[in-house]
Amino acid sequence: MRTAQSRPPVTARHVPLFCDTTLATRIERAEAQLIAAASTATRHRRGDAAGFVLPVAGGVASFAEADSPFNKVAGLGFGDAPSAAELDEIERAFTTYGVPTQVELAHLADPTIGTVLTERGYRLVSFENVLGLALDASSGGDTPEGIDIRTSEEGELERWLDVVVDGVAHPDTQGVPSHEEFPREAVRGAVRDLAGATQAARYAALRDGVLAGGASMRMRDGIAQLTGAATAPAHRRRGIQTALLAARLADAEAAGCDLAVVTTQPGSKSQQNAQRAGFDLLYTRAILVRQL
């Protein structure tokens, strides 16, 4: 069992982390690599050659399997602008599997891309926020009494998945709702593949000795990507999310990462928890979809 180090509270003198296009490029490339690795892992799990991962304009287009959250274009707009031929190729690829083409486009990306996509019939359907925290020796936080955070053991993977998937299936209603819903088994497969393929560290939260929540984190090139956290509905409002966040931040700083990032729904409880821990809103991604 472990307790995260103490982190001083955020004060009015807190200087927000400034995000320019250089920092956004770094974050979006890490996101594209994450999606590519997870999508490839899904195909390996199935044991067939269906699906694809295609590079496009500094990002990646991915189809993992039916109903997967990895079916999208990520990291677009921080290399050269995509050509018409490149967009034709990825749209045909998604159409082959009978799904629309979904693009996550950061508002710091090349602004001409939004015009190109809307002219091709893409429609804005939602937004998501990317928040970041510059890590230092104070990264971490206090763990509430009765809650223990530890690395999840290999032998408890299935139980860990049960808790995480159950938490995802019962999201908090605060903030803007997600435009997507995924079948339970698709979520389970995605969480398994994300943790396994990307070498993400898994964390277990125990409340009075009972497995009550889980989270994961991927560290690459100095960036700690907080790749998900969930609490079982019966254990919510007990500080578990905050404790999972604090433990991951402390570990990321100790491992030499200089930046932690997390993606949230706008106005959500997850965003509120992150900002209470000192995260700043760096940029927003627009979700654009071209239907079949």
Rank of each mutant, 00 (worst) to 15 (best):
A30F: 00
E65W: 04
R220G: 08
D136P: 01
K72R: 06
G75V: 03
R290Y: 02
G114A: 12
A37M: 13
I223W: 05
A212Q: 11
Q33A: 08
V56M: 07
L124Q: 13
A246G: 00
L131Y: 04
A277L: 12
L249H: 05
A255F: 12
L259P: 03
I147R: 03
D88Q: 10
A234Y: 01
D148E: 07
Q225M: 11
T11W: 10
D280I: 12
E31S: 05
V191L: 05
T173K: 12
A12L: 10
A57D: 01
G222F: 04
G79Y: 02
P233I: 06
A30Q: 05
L282K: 15
G196S: 05
G77V: 04
G58F: 10
F18W: 03
R46M: 09
F279Q: 02
Q241I: 02
R120M: 12
D80V: 02
H179G: 03
R13Y: 09
G59A: 08
Q174A: 15
Q174C: 15
G47A: 06
T263D: 13
D193R: 01
V53T: 14
R192N: 05
A205P: 09
P100A: 12
T143I: 11
G77P: 05
R184H: 09
L292G: 00
T101Q: 11
G213K: 12
A230Y: 04
K269R: 14
L292Q: 02
S178Y: 01
E185F: 04
S270M: 15
I223N: 03
S178L: 03
T151D: 07
Q241C: 00
V10H: 01
S126Y: 13
G189F: 06
A64F: 10
W160K: 04
F63H: 09
D251F: 02
I287T: 14
A106W: 13
H44K: 08
I149G: 13
V116F: 05
P144S: 03
R192A: 05
E181N: 02
G58H: 09
R188H: 02
A224E: 03
P266I: 13
S6F: 13
P16G: 06
S83G: 13
G213R: 06
R276G: 13
A32F: 09
S270L: 12
A250Y: 03
L34T: 05
D136A: 01
K269F: 12
E28I: 07
A74Y: 02
G77T: 04
P82H: 00
Y122I: 08
V116T: 14
T143Q: 11
R238H: 01
I35L: 14
R218I: 04
F279P: 00
L34C: 10
R237N: 02
T101Y: 09
I27Y: 04
P82A: 00
R192L: 09
M1D: 02
S138C: 01
D208A: 14
R13S: 10
K269S: 14
V15L: 07
V289K: 06
D221M: 09
T118F: 07
E145L: 10
G47N: 08
R159P: 00
I149Y: 08
S270V: 14
D142R: 07
G47Q: 08
I27V: 10
V125K: 07
A204I: 08
S83W: 04
Q225G: 10
L23A: 03
A32R: 08
E181G: 02
I287Q: 09
L194C: 10
E181K: 02
C19W: 06
T40V: 14
